[in-house]
């Protein structure tokens, strides 16, 4: 097997673009949320200042080995998710390290960060962290179910487990997108998408007013900065999967930015007008509304 070593710097370039885009987009989304509340909101470069400040904090304390590894796992979950699926279809530079079975790997990576965080937050010993991570795992597990069903449905539809081939099958006009050829799978996946974006009504994991921010309660300085970096990468990486599977992928960066932003806005639009679900409510919601749609989409394929 020959490996093209140029792929590594190209993949790092993708990572660089996505980190910066993610930071700016998160600030923009926060500004949009603030405008809904009739505030001006944070400056567009606020996330950079926060990140530099957290990396520059001089002292830090640790609670043990897993406490170190929690943010590392989380960040590698985000980076891995991004690097193993093609960002731009048909581009030599930005196909990253995609391979034939990357869809399965992506499903695994989506869950990986949460599990790492669970171990790390548990070791921090703070009761709020334990409550938060319990809620998080329950909710993510419930939200992952319709997502997995939708992915299987799409894999059956195109008879492949390669993201690149799934994107290839959707080229040639928007009527070929999975959105129109398999709308039920897309519906199930988008309902699951709401649950995994940490926005209302599914943000009980962090629950800022109730269990002070949950899992990361004890995390500070560089640990927190790693997690902030992941906050910029992970949503984008996840949306890239959605874009590739359901919305025809992207062939140039402007198309990529636009599609990622619009898909993100789905969760924002739902989030700003809905109050928060409790965990048992959200699990019931996923099982009652999203899972049957996912099963139906598999049956119909």
């Amino acid at each position: 097997m020959d490996f093209d070593w140029m792929k590594i710097p190209y993949a790092l370039l993708t990572l660089f673009i996505v980190v910066n885009y993610g930071m700016l987009q998160n600030a923009l989304i926060a500004k949009i949320g603030a405008r809904v509340g009739r505030r001006r909101g944070i400056p567009i470069w606020q996330n950079y200042a926060d990140l530099i400040k957290n990396y520059s904090i001089r002292s830090s304390i640790t609670h043990g080995v897993m406490y170190y590894l929690g943010p590392v796992f989380r960040l590698s979950g985000g980076v891995g998710l991004l690097l193993f699926v093609p960002s731009l279809y048909g581009s030599e530079m930005f196909s990253n390290l995609s391979f034939a079975g990357d869809l399965i790997l992506a499903l695994y990576f989506i869950f990986f960060g949460t599990l790492g965080m669970a171990l790390g937050a548990a070791e921090s010993g703070h009761p709020y962290a334990a409550i938060g991570i319990t809620r998080g795992l329950q909710q993510v597990s419930a939200a992952e179910l319709p997502m997995a069903l939708a992915v299987f449905s799409v894999a059956l539809q195109y008879q492949t487990l390669s993201v690149t081939e799934i994107v290839a099958a959707q080229q040639g006009g928007f009527q070929n997108w999975t959105l129109f050829t398999n709308p039920l799978a897309v519906a199930a996946a988008m309902l699951s998408f709401l649950g995994s974006m940490m926005r209302p009504p599914f943000d009980v994991v962090l629950a800022p007013q109730e269990i002070p921010i949950g899992p990361p309660t004890e995390y500070h300085s560089s640990y927190l900065a790693l997690m902030q970096t992941n906050r910029a990468i992970f949503p984008i990486a996840k949306i890239v999967i959605y874009m590739n599977l359901f919305f025809g992928g992207a062939t140039i960066w402007p198309e990529f930015f636009l599609k990622v932003f619009l898909i993100y806005m789905v969760s924002v639009l739902v989030g700003v007008v809905h109050p928060r679900f409790r965990v048992e409510q959200s699990i019931r919601w996923f099982l009652v509304w999203a899972v049957p749609i996912g099963i139906l989409s598999i049956v119909l394929v």
Binding site: A34, R40, P43, Q46, P216, T217, E218, Y219, H220
Partner: peptide
Amino acid sequence: MTPRFDAYRYGVQWRPTPRQSN
């Protein structure tokens, strides 16, 4: 924190835990 004064636009935020606040 409210729309009238909105300190967030000056980079001021509230954190619920002493570990993260400065």
